[in-house]
Write a protein that binds this DNA or RNA. Structure first.
Lengths: 107, 107
DNA sequence: CAGTTATATAACATGCATATTATATAACTG
DNA sequence: CAGTTATATAATATGCATGTTATATAACTG
């Protein structure tokens, strides 16, 4: 599985996006991350494994705890790929014939 | 399924990303999109349905053909969500204690 | 050391995603 | 109109993702 496959696939799950949103506020342990969800701890552990495998989070060992935090380079690769679309889209958006085609379609 | 679920989920598939990359070069019909892949036409039709459902592409009717193009607003919502992470990541990256924690983990 | 806490892993159920083949539909073309 | 082309849909197979419960492991705590 390509790295982009893993990253986008990981982001496709709302639980995992919520976990990332939580981690955007700062480091958290597995139990802290599991707490807000109506889901068992093993389920959260697996989500974290997916996020780690996708390079979106990092973990350290601190006694029995495994605090998680966002991976600093996580978003860069995704942004790079999206950049290709962004460029085309903004270019198309300014081309008259495309705008007219879009208007015709919407009728 | 949330709109972000659909978008990220659609982007998780390499065939669909390749289709989007192709559409970044300009409009194309189903057959044109199917040609480079070792995959049947119905399979491509379903991928296009997924991309359309995720709001990533638009289609018009032109005789028997259904030319596809990128949806101008496709990437915006994704970018918006990623923005949240981007902000935190760049902030963390500049905080001394986080940098030190990262270094310690890497030992 | 015994008990508890934090986390991971295994076994299992279930449903969804994706591909295939076969077929339907609708529009061109001679 | 008959045949072909462009695309969609149905039926089906299969595998992967995700959740659960039960259990293992390793580190704290009294």
């Amino acid at each position: 599985m390509s790295s982009l496959d893993a990253a986008f696939s990981a982001l496709a799950d709302p639980t995992r996006r919520a976990i990332l949103a939580r981690l955007a506020l700062g480091e958290a342990t597995v139990m802290e991350l599991a707490e807000p969800f109506e889901m068992t701890q093993p389920a959260i552990s697996r989500h974290l494994k997916v996020l780690e495998g996708a390079g979106l989070i990092l973990r350290r060992v601190e006694g029995t705890k495994r605090p998680c935090r966002l991976a600093p380079t996580a978003v860069a690769e995704i942004d790079q790929w999206l950049g290709m679309l962004r460029q085309t889209l903004s270019a198309n958006y300014n081309r008259l014939d495309d705008v007219l085609a879009a208007m015709r379609t919407e009728e």
